[in-house]
Design a protein around this nucleic acid. Structure first.
Lengths: 338, 338
DNA sequence: CTGAAAGCGCTTACAG
DNA sequence: CTGAAAGCGCTTACAG
């Protein structure tokens, strides 16, 4: 691959001049610019971004550490992040933590070593020392979807969805359909979304005079298998719940697997609802009632906040809201025509 | 962030020595190694990968350009690629082409500019000049899933799935269930998988004495919308097909959308099958018959081949096979208990 | 076993 | 408007 000096030589100028035309520096005579451009074209020259980054101390790359690529929610998020970043001249490097803190750390480390300009993370856990370090060390950072608290993390903006109202709508919906024994498959307590969704569910239940007994809170990890496991436990209870709320779409998938494998039917035997909506929910048997996040807006806002930080502007946290999308998995809505 | 010279200073040695202990060079006295390591720990020093890459001419990063992140097949592929790469000490940078040749080129360019050590690509189209250039320019490359032919591309290994036998099995299955008018929602003719799946379908039909008339071949682009559009056209035909085979899972999603919106039922009104299996196919109404690719093996083999090329070993193409997973979307299999 | 020095491919004050 | 030179943070022959 040709280097800048090859271009300079061919164009009969210095490397400084080549660099100037490449960077659109105004002070270059038109004819020398043309000569340089011709040489660039002849050689098929492409600037080495590694060398440029070393010199300029910026990579024009953003790191994005997501909890699980196999989760359509994160995949959509990643897509909107990439779109927004590209629009602003940044590329994004994705790391998939697979809901594993060790893998998350691995990616944070790698990304920081590669000197990405900023880091977008949706933490899998309560925050490792390494994560805190990255934040303190000066790498601009923003949390998306999930976040962590800690020494030196107050400065880190959080871009997320508040599902509170939507969860309340869901509970109202379930209540109206006659369900009284409601259970939740929770995400890891180490994650904010894991805790918040349970809290929101619990307080909505209280509003309707309903309790959330311990045996109706199943501990999942946001992945399908845990949804299966927790659902099995629920269904084995002497008084199983009438409705199950899965805190993400993969655990809902696991729940369906388990329900189906027992020959039971949704919603006749158990109602089911999920946090996070996905296109397939329209076609499942029955279509699944879900809480939809504005994923695209989330990604755009996160990138906006991160670039603000990178470029030295103050960046604010952003909270968007989710909405309930009622379908048939909790029972036939009143006044509907089946 | 501290640089190597800060470590050297604190440890009272030269930067060369620090570099040696960081790279596990054997010729370092134990006590100086300890001093250096202590300084590294004190400062929280992390080597700058950008500088290292510039010096060593390798980034230990692989580029992966996939056609569509929102397609679960590619998402699974990306995951297995990342796993395999990580095991071998490489990280992977993903670029999402969104089935758009221009975006694909953008990513290839960016990745090559960043001097990734090798490129894994699943081309969206017939191959842009830029792509050919990347291959010729010396960037080690391997095609996954889809590939392109062209001047200078003979050397590029192809790691893919041959769906021929599975497609034949599918046609046999449809035939056994009494379907005779079979249609296909094809992928772009510019892609190998787009063409191959039609070819395989056509020759399987021929084997059963069936024709594949032009109006039963709908041109899609591997995304959901096109599945909807093509299905609408099929259903508007004076003699609509009895069965529709979608060449990927997103077009199958679009087909279901369209079928449902017309108040028709699968498989009673039309049978449906898809290339690529996904976990949700078990829970759709009805469960969808699909052709499953060994995605994990595909990713591992692709990484293996690419690293072979990078490290100067000869790399071979790999062809794996797909298998039919019959479910209920084509009709009740003989001898089954509903 | 260790250090001084060159060099990877760029950019950017500083002169002229 | 252009060039010579320094320097980004490393690694690695080459001496000693």
């Amino acid at each position: 691959m040709p280097a800048i000096k090859d271009v300079a030589q061919r164009a009969g100028v210095s490397v400084a001049t080549v660099s100037r035309v490449l960077n659109d520096h105004p002070a270059v005579r038109t004819d020398t610019r043309d000569k340089v451009l011709a040489a660039v074209a002849d050689l098929g020259y492409r600037p080495n971004a590694v060398a440029r980054s070393l010199r300029t101390h910026q990579t024009r790359a953003l790191g994005l550490v997501i909890s699980d690529v196999l989760n359509p929610f994160f995949t959509e998020l990643a897509r909107s992040v990439e779109d927004a970043a590209r629009d602003r001249g940044y590329s994004v490097v994705i790391g998939n933590a697979d809901e594993r803190p060790d893998l998350q750390d691995h990616h944070v480390r790698t990304l920081v070593d590669r000197r990405i300009d900023g880091l977008l993370v949706s933490p899998t856990d309560g925050g490792s020392p390494l994560m805190l370090d990255a934040a303190r060390t000066g790498t601009p950072m923003v949390f998306v979807d999930r976040w962590i608290e800690g020494e030196g993390l107050d400065e880190v903006p959080v871009v997320r969805t508040d599902g509170g109202a939507a969860v309340r709508d869901l509970v109202a919906h379930l209540h109206a359909l006659g369900h009284r024994r409601l259970a939740i498959i929770a995400g890891p307590a180490a994650t904010t979304t894991g805790r918040e969704r349970v809290d929101a569910f619990r307080s909505a239940l209280r509003e309707f005079g309903l309790a959330l007994p311990a045996e109706y809170i199943g501990q999942g990890d946001f992945q399908a298998d845990s949804g299966r496991r927790v659902t099995a436990r629920f269904l084995d209870l002497p008084r199983p719940p009438e409705a199950i709320f899965a805190a993400d779409n993969l655990m809902a998938l696991g729940a369906m697997d388990e329900i189906r494998s027992r020959g039971l039917r949704v919603p006749d035997d158990v109602a089911l609802a999920a946090f996070d909506d996905i296109p397939w929910f329209v076609h499942t048997d029955p279509p699944i009632t879900a809480i939809a996040q504005p994923t695209g807006d989330l990604g755009h806002a996160a990138v906006g906040a991160l670039i603000d930080r990178i470029e030295g502007r103050p960046a604010a946290s952003v909270t968007l809201s989710a909405r309930l999308v009622p379908r048939r998995s909790c029972g036939e809505p009143e006044g509907s025509t089946p």
